[in-house]
Nucleic acid binder design. Sequence first.
DNA 1: TTGAAAGCGCTACCAC
DNA 2: GTGGTAGCGCTTTCAA
Lengths: 348, 348
Amino acid sequence: MKDFEKQVSAVKQELEDNKQRATSYDVARAAGVSQSAVSRCFKQGGSISKKMRERVQKVAVELGYQPNAIARSLITRRSNIVAVVINNNTNLYYPELLVELSRDFNKRGVHMLLFTLENESDVTNMLDQVWQYQVDGVILAAQLKDTQLNFFSERSIPFVYYNRTTESGPCNSVTCDVAEGERMLVDHLFKSKHKRFCLLTGPADSAVSKKRMQGALERLHELDVDDIQIVAGNYSYSSGYQQIKTLILEHQWQPDAIICANDIMALGAYDAAIKECNLSVPKDISIVGFDGAEPASWQSYQLTTVSQPLERMADAAVDILMQRIENSALPPEKRVFSGVFIKGKTCK
Amino acid sequence: MKDFEKQVSAVKQELEDNKQRATSYDVARAAGVSQSAVSRCFKQGGSISKKMRERVQKVAVELGYQPNAIARSLITRRSNIVAVVINNNTNLYYPELLVELSRDFNKRGVHMLLFTLENESDVTNMLDQVWQYQVDGVILAAQLKDTQLNFFSERSIPFVYYNRTTESGPCNSVTCDVAEGERMLVDHLFKSKHKRFCLLTGPADSAVSKKRMQGALERLHELDVDDIQIVAGNYSYSSGYQQIKTLILEHQWQPDAIICANDIMALGAYDAAIKECNLSVPKDISIVGFDGAEPASWQSYQLTTVSQPLERMADAAVDILMQRIENSALPPEKRVFSGVFIKGKTCK
DNA sequence: TTGAAAGCGCTACCAC
DNA sequence: GTGGTAGCGCTTTCAA
């Protein structure tokens, strides 16, 4: 055994005895080089000779060495971690979003710290954590108060609002053109002679729902439709089901079109109309949603809806965020995508 | 203005000028105490007088100081971060899992680093990241090779296998008793005189699917049923739809019961039977799934299935993991939950 | 109870 | 290209 190998196994033994993880210093010792050399070896574009790199890498593998990301972050002030904040009581359209985001971030060597919000106290807690963990940036798929958004600006933490934006003032955001989408839906219904409209909303505190319903209402008013009933749901299948059942059977008010704030609720409305009210869709009543959620396309439903280009929106959010992380001087950017009208079979 | 306040605002100004984040040292300077005192103030059970605590906290708020979690982790060797690894091409039952886990972990002040796996290279990458980021523990809702699991053991990183377990040898795992669940389903079908069975599997590389199908098969064999056809799906709605359509229309083989590896695929099978094959469910054909996914309970479907106690399973996983993080000497533990039979309306 | 000093593992900068 | 040295922000001894 050569001296070199002897040294490596001695260090290895020592680490195992003390149940310690290998540090760059250990690798340096074992390889007989300086600690700086080890560091450079693991850094992109570090000036290092081929010989040295091979020598160090061999030892590193042998000792199971990987640079400690925590220590690195401490000095570079870059954690390579972004926070993704979602509001779990809203739209269940998000699971697919997470997969998309995760894919995009991983491609860039960035990791996702996940926060799911349930109530207001979770928000302040999340803000603290984001600050404590020095995350490089934040994707916000949850509504925050303006004062809470200021938290990020004050600390120069770049963030991107997903599926929502600020009304006044600039910020980074990625949204789907909701007004346009609702207009397509309303126009489609109006052209086929629908007269009595029911709007089934999401939770009262959902800005997304508010925006969507507002979009539909505006267009209806433009078209001089005024036979409109607004019913409060909460995005869930069962709320759609219950509310439509109640509206038609108990309140005896039967619309000829139901515009829902999201797809899942629309499916609940669909089932209620058919199973509870003995109506035929779309003959007796038309139903439209919004999102382009998976189940909406299932054969049993084939919902008429507007599909959000999820993948492109996620890409955009990641793109905007990463740009702002690399270069904090970049001005804010709002990217708006058009939804895609899906004809479906729930409108006559 | 008192000297004290003067000092605070001087430090504050300085930080703002340099766009720097407040450190414990800054707080110490502003409050006229030692840096150690500030540190103790933010540590649970740090020995510190009430007066000192108040003084420090007031300044900390003023300067927007929060301890830097990264620096803390470096020295405590505890990141308060756990990795959650999910396999995105499998069962879409997971979104709810994430919300559950997130809720549980947040309650304990622990954060989730999310990894979604798409292919084999993602696994090795994930392992590296887990190691680099010094995560305290791992929840594995994805199948890994035994050699990959060793990675964790060798480095004493506690992990919990979710919805899967090791056949041989101990490990921490939380599972649903699949064999028992499938037995309930098969018995239910058998009792109502079903004779010709189709098994619709998940992706070939899914251990969960394999386990479920195996459970069903074993019971069928015990009951001396041998008119069985196995069809390969991939967990998705469309695979269920296509495969059943093909089986019945093209291969002209019509089972009287279809046992699916998961719920979503069962819904696809259901729709195919009705829309494509003009069959009536459950009169002509019975269909069962596994999971207790949301859409399975929708009025249009009311699928007969076995529901996994998601919330309790998630709780258990978090519980087992956190215990191992606090005390690494704890022996491995496998917790098995019984699924709940949901009668539904897709079996005669 | 308090403060001084060491050091976690790394990168960044400097000479050489 | 290479090695020495300082120091990121914190916790943790150890004296006082």
